[in-house]
Amino acid sequence: MNFNRYPPLISLFGLLLCTSLFSAVIQAENNPVDEPTLVENDDDMFDDDFDDDFSDDFDDDFDDAPPPLVIHDPLEPLNRGMFWFNDKLYFYALKPVAKTYRYIPEPIRISLSNFLSNLTTPIRFVNALMQGKVNDAGNEMGRFFINTIVGVGGLFDPARKYVGLRKKEEDFGQTLGVLGIKPGPYLVIPFVGPSNTRDGVGYVVDTLTDPIGIVWQGRDYWAVKVTDTVNQISLDKDTYEAITGDALDPYLFVRDAYMQNRAGKVNK
């Protein structure tokens, strides 16, 4: 694969990312909406402990069911455009490449995934610490040492297989969320996917501090990132198709699913 063709694409992406972030911030400033995102509702009764939780309001009487997840999406027309773009990018560029890429034996692809994931351990470690999740931080550190030493520089994942230490996904967007920062307006970032103002900032910070960026710089970094993405899609079982294929309005479904997923991760 020749990655020399990517840089223009990448800078375009950077530019778009910046503009969409800025516009979102400006929008947010002009428009200081009451807390934008989640209106906690009924289902949450399950998430905490059970004290008074399984109350009957859930049971027979749905009339007073609280409104569903309310998401602040002032940029919806623009976001829909970006969603359309990403959707086409997925189906016409990433997916075909990933399909071809599947000719590479799966163990090799899994090892590549393990290797890159092992390199990014510091991001997860630091963010777990910043969120006060000491156990998860220890978990990530343990994984890093075991997989680097026993797992041949991270190519294999003996920490998961033999020690039962499973990866904890942590990023800066989650840390900001734990610190009490609200998600802000929903954003669809070209080449990146669904996000929001907070997680978009988180994404930029994670990218700037990405250890992979120390090993590979400039173009090489983005080449590695694109390879990683294609590799992940090749290992994935068509989740995106399944989600968007069943939905009457894929944009709304993905928006909702993304916001729920992030809220769930922050509250974990």
């Binding site: 289902d43 909702d256 991760k265």
Partner: peptide, 11 residues
């Protein structure tokens, strides 16, 4: 973390 019911409900 994504509830099927919730996702369908809002769309």
């Amino acid at each position: 973390e994504v509830s099927l019911i919730r996702s369908y409900r809002s769309s």
